[in-house]
């Protein structure tokens, strides 16, 4: 172990960063692949089916088979499409989902870029994801794709405001934009985590996250029963796969952020409980974080299997007339609580 760390310091800094990036992106890609399998399995069991079970033992190799299939398929660029933008679209939707992971802390010290404006960086980067969808919808030169892109743009801009206000609440409560400091501000016990004092903001953040990632029941941008498949109707093969990867990477990102900001990140849920705290002290923090992310991801899948798709005008009403007023009122409440150092959370 000691030899390993001395060897690590001799590696040039650029190479160190590249290795760290790979150490984040490769497990993330694997997680995305197996999230697709988990989704099909979970929804299968919810609907009293078995789900994919043919490729490999219990269907465990299904994502790999899907990946190979999509790689081998021909990429068709429709005539009349804007060629360069048609290719740039999927790249622009995947890139923000990956670069946002630079500031995510996995542990007290385990973070690629420990910057002070981490929360702001996340907001800025995730707000760029919408370009991939808009550009793809426009460049396809297809009415369905264009309708999907327009729906997506309107929806994401509306829900980003509610999401931003929810994050402002977190930043007020923690007094810092650094994601590591936000988690450290929740130290104490399960009841110290921000989900309790910021409960409305937590719910709004997660629902807005579902809307931002275009997942059911807010998947009007795809809307397969209305506009075929929305913005990616003209995409095939690898370009389609990149859109798919971006959607699932975004789901994992939103879950990770919710876990960090509201559910105590890498902190153990047994903190402050006399007996259990010692019993589970050996568990590394990253395991708790991954567990919390998994629970939130399961919620994503559960939503998809449970709720019918929202009507478009109801989505807009929910975003503008319900979520934004609630966040503003709760921001005032949090502000007062922080000002008067409400005991238990903000003292």
């Amino acid at each position: 172990m000691n030899m390993l760390s001395t060897f690590w310091t001799t590696v040039p800094i650029t190479l160190q960063i590249v290795i760290q990036i790979l150490a984040i992106v490769l497990p993330l890609s694997l997680a995305v692949a197996y999230l697709t399998l988990a989704e099909r399995k979970v929804i299968g069991y919810i609907q009293a089916r078995i789900g994919p079970n043919r490729v490999g033992p219990r269907g465990w190799l299904q994502p790999i088979a899907d990946g190979i299939k999509l790689l081998m398929k021909e990429v068709i660029i429709p005539s009349g499409a804007s060629r360069a933008l048609f290719i740039i679209g999927p790249i622009l939707s995947l890139a923000p989902a990956l670069i946002a992971w630079a500031v995510i802390p996995f542990d007290n010290t385990l973070v690629l870029a420990d910057i002070n404006a981490g929360l702001l960086y996340i907001m800025a980067v995730t707000s760029m994801g919408v370009y991939g969808v808009i550009i793809a919808g426009w460049a396809s030169n297809s009415k369905y794709a264009f309708l999907g892109a327009m729906r997506c743009a309107a929806q994401i801009v509306s829900y980003e405001i509610a999401m931003g206000f929810a994050l402002v609440g977190v930043l007020l409560a923690a007094g810092s934009l650094n994601l590591g400091d936000i988690v450290r501000a929740q130290t104490g016990s399960l009841a110290h985590w921000f989900w309790l004092p910021l409960l409305p903001l937590f719910l709004i953040y997660f629902i807005a996250g579902v809307a931002e990632t275009n997942r059911a029941p807010f998947d009007v941008a795809e809307g397969e029963s209305e506009i075929v498949a929305g913005f990616h109707v003209e995409y095939s093969g690898m370009t389609f796969a990149v859109f798919f990867l971006a959607e699932y990477a975004n789901m994992i990102l939103v879950s990770a952020l919710a876990a960090l900001m509201f559910l105590g990140g890498w902190l153990s849920p047994f903190q402050g409980i006399p007996l259990l705290q010692g019993l589970f002290a050996w568990v590394p923090g990253i395991v708790w974080l991954l567990l919390k992310i998994s629970v939130l991801l399961f919620l994503f899948l559960w939503f998809r299997a449970t709720f019918p798709r929202y009507r478009y005008d109801q989505i807009m009403r929910l975003g503008w007339k319900v979520f934004i007023p609630i966040t503003i009122v709760w921001l005032l409440a949090v502000g007062v609580a922080v000002l008067y150092k409400l005991p238990w959370w903000f003292d």
Partner: peptide, 22 residues
């Protein structure tokens, strides 16, 4: 000036230009 830079991306790239493109 990271606050200004990130706010520029958040406001102009993430919101204003999306509506403009729209």
């Amino acid at each position: 000036a990271e606050f200004l830079a990130l706010t520029l991306v958040l406001v102009y790239v993430g919101a204003v230009m999306v509506l403009f493109l729209f």
